[in-house]
Amino acid sequence: MTALKVLIADDEPLAADRLVALLDPLENLDIVGIAEDGDQAVALAAEHQPDLVLLDISMPGMDGIEVARHLARAEPRPAVIFVTAYDQFAVAAFEVAAVDYLMKPVDRNRLIAAIERAREALDHREPGEGKAADSLFLTEFWASDMSGLVRIAAADIDRISAERDYMRLHVGDRSWLIHHSMASLEQGLDPAMFVRLHRSAILRRDFIDGFSRNASGRWIAQLGDGSEQPVGRLYAEHVREMTGR
């Protein structure tokens, strides 16, 4: 059996040490690096091309969900197992196709089972499944509601608004919260379909009916549901790009 190259990413040294201690007795595993934050995780992944990443979610700078989105563009794409003290990120982990989601303190048997799942996923990975192409855009989201999980197609989203550490997806008269950053959504969504017009707002282009100016000369987007969205000064150039003015 070929040894799995494993990268650990956790900003808590004790948690990283515990994972190392759990992995050391296991056969056919090679720990190629330990990252202390999200940016370092991306850099080490590019350097070592791990097969498996054990990834914390709550880290300084780039969080684990954003790191997983970067890794999804790698070739070959590594398997990801989230290891976290928080259970509220499970839906976001599902969206980025994580192999498993382990709660701290990590149980040895659960970790072994998760690694076996990762091996199976890697064995069935198709050539070219992961790629670094900029054309790899988000096509769907999974959000929680009263009945469980609901799939939301990106093409159905009218607008996205920021609410602290969460983003609200608006589809008609309904909305759902997901755990993402505005920056990662702006990067991940197809720019031919979506445009960012404010630091806390992304809109589907064909949901915008027009633009007007207020008394101070600021652009205001007129939306398909009759509401309005002020355009941030930093994003006025997007209006000019859309309208040619």
Rank of each mutant, 00 (worst) to 15 (best):
R151T: 02
E95S: 11
K104M: 04
Y101I: 07
S144E: 15
P191A: 02
L26Y: 01
A132S: 15
E126P: 09
V67F: 04
G128Q: 11
G232T: 10
I57H: 03
G232H: 08
L44P: 05
G244D: 05
L71D: 00
Q88C: 10
R73E: 07
I157H: 04
L138C: 08
L102E: 07
S216I: 02
R159E: 02
V91L: 13
A93S: 11
M62W: 11
E186V: 08
E237P: 02
L197F: 11
D225K: 10
A118H: 09
G172F: 09
L197W: 07
E47I: 15
A90H: 08
A16Q: 00
E126N: 09
R108K: 13
G188I: 03
Y166K: 09
I152P: 01
R213I: 00
M103E: 09
I8P: 01
L203C: 09
L14H: 04
L7M: 02
G232S: 14
V67Q: 03
R110S: 08
H238C: 09
P13R: 03
V239K: 11
A154V: 08
A221N: 01
T243L: 14
N109H: 15
D37R: 02
Y86E: 14
L7D: 02
D145Q: 05
S184T: 14
V42N: 09
R159S: 10
I112E: 11
D24M: 11
T139E: 13
R159W: 05
M146I: 09
A114M: 06
F211A: 07
M242E: 02
Y235E: 15
I8G: 01
D100C: 07
G217Y: 00
P78N: 03
A92F: 08
V20N: 06
W176R: 08
Y166F: 05
A154H: 10
M146V: 13
A98V: 12
G232K: 09
A93V: 06
S147N: 12
V150W: 02
A192F: 02
Q229R: 05
